[in-house]
Simulated scan of single mutants.
Amino acid sequence: MSQTLRQPEILDLLRRDGRVTVEGLAQHFGVTLQTIRRDLADLAEAGQIERVHGGAVLPSRIANIGYEERRRLHGAAKAAIGQACAALVPQDCSLFLAIGTTTEAVARALRGHRNLLVVTNNVHVAQILLGNRDCTVILSGGAIRRADSGLVGPLTVQTIRQFKFDIAILGCSALDEEGDLLDFDIEEVGVNRAVIEQARRTILVADHSKFQRSAPARIASLRDIGTFVTDRPLAPALAARCRDWGTGVVVTGPAAETPEV
């Protein structure tokens, strides 16, 4: 395969997986390590990737990728995370479900639960749970963000502060090696901080691609989260921090695989 065909596919793999390795790409394309290193050097010089030891990641960004594209990524992992998270939710409780494609997967897994009160700022979540007649759905106020039909802003926070949730289920755009939850939208960060304050227990749902991404705004730390549900094991240092903080970590089926290094 020529360089002009390889490099766009490398970018597609990065958007899908968040990280690529030189050895993995060489095997994928059937070319030498040196050839892949030249491709990565070209892409890095063009500002399309960032080189890291042994491979590359997408560059740090101040804007998230499109919502429909995020929906297509890691669908099986998100479905498994959704099922695992739903298993932690008892019947007869109050929930907050936040914006995100993984929280949508949780909503789909909750359609068989009984006697739920769900508050959400995610129009898609509300639509999914309307199919559960044993679920009362309250859509928060706020301005609708056209990019993803999420509700954000002061009215959203005011709605949230009227409740004390048994469980809040949040996503994030990125999770750094120190255990900080990151996002791109300052208004959404403010909403999620209010949710954490109003919840007796908080669950974070995020697939492994969030480990390789970056975003500019900090929501909270895994220290502030009761349980983290993901699809691959955490790096040893972060896993140790979670143990020290008392943050439970649930790894779903596909996560038996070893994280890429």
Rank of each mutant, 00 (worst) to 15 (best):
L116S: 08
N64F: 02
R70V: 00
R241I: 00
D207H: 04
T32V: 00
R6P: 07
R19V: 07
L25H: 12
A235F: 09
R243S: 02
Q34L: 07
R16N: 11
R145A: 03
G179W: 11
A143K: 15
G246R: 02
F96K: 12
P216L: 08
I81E: 09
R72T: 12
L25S: 10
G248D: 15
L116K: 06
L238Y: 01
R133I: 09
L181E: 05
L151F: 14
F29V: 01
L43K: 07
D231F: 04
P154Y: 02
D12V: 12
E68T: 12
P236T: 02
L116E: 12
I65C: 01
R243I: 06
E177C: 08
R241A: 06
A26W: 03
P233Y: 10
Q212L: 05
R145W: 05
A217L: 06
R19F: 03
D185L: 09
D183V: 03
D244V: 06
V31E: 10
A98T: 11
Q198E: 11
A56N: 11
A235K: 13
A143I: 11
A56F: 08
V123P: 00
A107D: 09
G131Q: 13
G54R: 05
G24A: 13
E9N: 14
L117C: 12
Q3W: 14
V195K: 06
T101R: 00
F211H: 15
Q83C: 04
R213S: 10
N64R: 08
Q162Y: 09
N132W: 06
M1F: 09
S149G: 01
V123A: 10
F228D: 15
T32E: 09
F163G: 08
G82I: 00
Q7W: 00
G150F: 04
D176N: 15
I128D: 10
N132I: 07
D92F: 08
A126Y: 02
A239V: 03
L97K: 12
G179R: 08
H53I: 07
I225G: 00
P90F: 06
L129I: 12
E68P: 06
R232H: 15
L151T: 07
T230C: 15
V137W: 02
I128K: 04
G253K: 03
D42R: 11
F228C: 10
R108C: 13
A98G: 15
